[in-house]
Amino acid sequence: MRRPPAITGLRGAGGIRIVTLDWKPVSWATVVDHYAVYADGTLIGKTVYPHFVHRGLGFTGVTRSYSVVTVDAAGNRSAQSPATAVANLTSVTISGTPIATVGTFDGKGSELALSPKGYAQYPTRFPSDVDYTFGTSTPAADWSYLLPGPADKWAGTKNHRAAFRFDLPAVPEQDLDLALWLIDSHASLAASALLTINGAEAGRLTFANGATKGSTIADSTYPGSPLKPSYLELPLPKALFRPGQNTLELFKDQGSWIAYDALGVFARR
């Protein structure tokens, strides 16, 4: 038996509920069957790519030791690659204090308007897109489960926006945090949206491609759910906010839809 070479250059990056691993593949001289990926000595998955996303982790950061074994076409296994320690991130939904939220951060979009598959009604239910006021609007009536994009014919092949209004007693002392969780997104056209706070540009949000299933299925949590949830969390500079009503807006001017799990603004403790 000839042992195939082990991979090199293993590195990881923590995200919300995930750790993304990348490495340098072995040369084409080795016909690879797959790479077996281990966390703390346990097989967590196989992939043919020099890339693996460890999913389904908790919302609180935990450091794990990752390594990779090359399995070749004959079934021979390499030695374990050198290990690398990576932690997933702690979500602001755990570490922060909610100021205003819509939906529940639970992997499901079923509490939102038109869920689980009412997307065709979007143009009639939301002719002027979504305008939601925290405290008076209700998720089931006023927050569409999908935010369509210009690539969506069913939503008129045009840009769409979702405004989220909430009150602040004063300008916050520290930066706030945005949590935007998706149960799924389009598989290749999730693309991006422009984020504004009170009319000021606060960045472009790039969404992970999903499975194009969240337009008809609301639950990403049951075993075997085809949905591919993703999590965006980012700081919102305190200078963008003001006392009284504030408006956070997502402007989907690229690609296709995203399917919400929940959205919220959090204060730091």
Partner: peptide, 19 residues
């Protein structure tokens, strides 16, 4: 790939599929 796998990764899939 039509399913969002970047080309530099997809070639590895093609390799095993052709094999």
């Amino acid at each position: 790939s039509l399913y969002g796998v970047p080309p530099e990764l997809f070639v590895h899939r093609r390799a095993v599929a052709y094999r």
